[in-house]
Design a protein around this nucleic acid. Structure first.
Length: 565
RNA sequence: GCACUCAUAGCUCAGCUGGAUAGAGCAUCGGUUUGCGGUACCGAAGGUCUCAGGUUCGAAUCCUGAUGGGUGUACCA
């Protein structure tokens, strides 16, 4: 239900009838319940243009509003606000439609586009750490969201699988022989051991350097070892993705090395575009208004990540055919992306109509507001963090005796992982985010547990009720009214969140919805004695649609629900 | 130095294209006739939206400057 645009349409018609030849601004949600459901603030803005006082203009608009459809009432308030009340009968019928629809009334985009979402991007020489968390879950949410709205989403995991350290790592893997894959379980340790050998043994160090050259020149033996190493390392990542309920698979992997062959061509093409200049021995693109050039080839002939990114950009635009390419990467790389995007456009690698965007996010901080580290200052492995979340989640389960060991385990996983993800997604992605176990695992406030609890609570209603739900939705009081309107807003929220790539708009909405439901449920009994059949049926349907909306919303965030908590 | 970014209640955060008396949660205080899941709900208190100007009928939101924090600044990714 594109609620807002339907209301806008009514306003637009009123404009036309009133003979106002301006495009009306969009209505917005009423700031307070007493101001109705929506408000139109455009009369004040028109005052100067039309040379009339705003209340006069508002009156003209109001007199031409159509009250035979979705609007029930409108009032002029203050300097010229038009407060709008939706027709309860209309709301009820729309909720009914949504409840019956598998998509809850959320339409698919009329003109879907191909979108590449680049996220996660772990480095194969190291284990995933907390620094990868935000990219991974924000990116996954964006991909889920756009998929749900009907776009053709191509997930891209741009893993780091190339560079000098791999010579060392595969030389060490070869030396370990069969045991290599075993000790690789702890990549961190493996890296340290390899580095130890590298520093201590000159022969080994030579071999490592030799291997780098050999990989790059396509030596089969070394490439096999390299491939083995990548496979194992990627397996670790997949364990994390699995735990996180993130949908990345091997099909989504397009490693850095994938673009190797195109790199010389990137340079060639930049030369033929006259964009390249040599500076201090390096090949650079100097952009207007930028102090620092984009270096695409080092003095020694090596390529840089800007080169790879350019190759990736044109592959995504031209081969994959993407019209929107979204990079979910740490905010610290803003300058890099700004420059690379500019080069991509100026060189014609990427057509003008392709939207390139850096979905930047802030840093994860500890309780004290400092970057998140272990006690001894090391990086926190992502898998350890997730395991800890599951352990802590177990403590929140009240009656463990009612569940089998496996059930507790499964439940703890859903709660713990959901808490970690939700806490992150609920923050405006651009600001830094303070990680706090107690807060995220609380039932109170805007948390996944509150949402899961609300869902489970509704499910328990349906466990107690067995029968067929028939009849209409009847909006009987102010809370039912507000809840219903909130339910109809779902589509607007999702589309807005997709434009802004802002998961927190979804969490905010879900929290408001769940809160509103709790209030409604507190005040309006459903299965208690004395509730007449018609009212019961109506409220059951509202409860059902609320639960479905929460579930669908959380599903987009990659968070599961359970029938019992 | 330059560039980018942030500054909202004691704490953690919302606040969409400028709109009415700036909103939540936590913490604090008080309340809810056995409560369909009370891990809930209701209420109170809590603010110079860092500061100073400007634009506007109207500014937390836009512009300029100041202060304070964060980040980035040519051959790592």
């Amino acid at each position: 239900m594109k609620l807002k645009s339907q209301i806008n349409q009514v306003i637009k018609e009123a404009f036309s009838k009133a003979g106002i030849e301006h495009e009306p601004m969009s209505v917005s949600e009423a700031t307070k319940a007493e101001f109705g459901d929506y408000q139109f603030n455009g009369a004040m803005a028109l005052s100067k243009k039309l040379g009339k006082n705003p209340r006069e203009i508002a009156t003209e608009i109001l007199n031409n509003l159509d009250f035979t459809g979705l609007l029930a009432k409108a009032e002029i308030a203050g300097p010229g606000f038009i407060n709008l009340w939706l027709n309860p009968l209309w709301i009820a019928s729309q909720c009914k439609v949504a409840a019956k629809d598998s998509r809850l009334g959320v339409g698919k985009r009329e003109t879907p586009i191909k979108v590449v979402v680049d996220y996660s991007g772990p480095n194969m020489s190291k284990q995933m750490h907390v620094g990868h968390l935000r990219s991974t879950i924000i990116g996954d949410t964006l991909a889920n969201l756009l998929t749900f709205l009907g776009d053709e989403v191509i997930r891209q995991n741009h893993i780091g699988d190339w560079g000098t350290q791999f010579g060392m790592l595969i030389a060490y893997l070869e030396e370990m022989g069969e045991d290599g894959s075993v000790s690789l379980k702890d990549l961190e340790q493996f890296y340290k051991d390899a580095k130890g050998r590298f520093d201590a043994d000159a022969d080994f160090a030579d071999k490592a350097r030799e291997y780098v050259v050999k990989i790059q020149s396509g030596d089969q033996h070394c490439l096999n070892l390299w491939q083995k190493f990548i496979d194992i390392s990627l397996g670790h990542c997949e364990d994390v993705y699995d735990k996180l309920c993130v949908k990345l698979t091997r099909e989504d992997v397009k490693a850095e090395s994938f673009y190797n062959e195109d790199l010389p061509q990137v340079i060639e093409d930049l030369i033929s575009q006259n964009l390249l200049k040599e500076s201090d021995g390096a090949q650079c693109v100097f952009l207007e208004g930028e102090e620092i050039p984009v270096i695409v080839q080092k003095g020694d002939g090596g390529y840089l990540y800007a080169t790879t990114d350019l190759a990736a950009l044109r592959y995504r635009a031209n081969v994959l055919g993407a019209k929107r390419i979204s990079y979910v990467v740490d905010a610290r790389q803003a300058a890099h992306f700004k420059q690379v995007f500019k080069v991509a456009k100026e060189s014609g690698f990427v057509a003008e109509d392709v939207k390139l965007e850096h979905i930047a996010f802030g840093t994860m901080m500890d309780k004290g507001g400092k970057p998140f580290k272990t006690r001894d200052g090391g990086t926190v492995k992502l898998i350890d963090l997730l395991d800890e979340a599951v352990v802590k989640a177990k403590e929140t389960i009240n009656d463990k005796d009612n569940y089998s060991k496996e059930e507790v385990e499964a439940l703890a996983k859903i709660i713990g992982i959901g808490a970690v993800k939700y806490a992150d997604l609920a923050i405006n992605r651009e600001s830094n985010y303070i990680f706090n176990w107690d807060k995220m695992l609380s039932f109170e406030g805007n948390t996944s547990l509150y949402m899961q609890y609300a869902y489970a609570r509704i499910q328990s209603i349906f466990r107690r009720f067995d029968g067929e739900i028939i009849g209409d939705i009847i909006i009987g009081d102010a809370l039912e009214h507000r809840l219903s309107v909130m339910l109809l807003r779902f589509e607007d929220v999702l589309y807005r969140a997709a434009v802004d790539a802002a998961p927190n708009q979804i969490t905010t909405y879900l929290y408001e919805l769940a809160t509103l439901f709790m209030r409604f449920y507190e005040q309006n009994p459903i299965l208690k004695e004395g509730v007449d059949e018609e009212t019961k049926m109506s409220r059951l349907q509202l409860a059902d649609l609320t639960a479905k909306t929460i579930k669908q919303g959380l599903d987009i965030l990659g968070i599961q629900v359970v029938d019992k908590l």
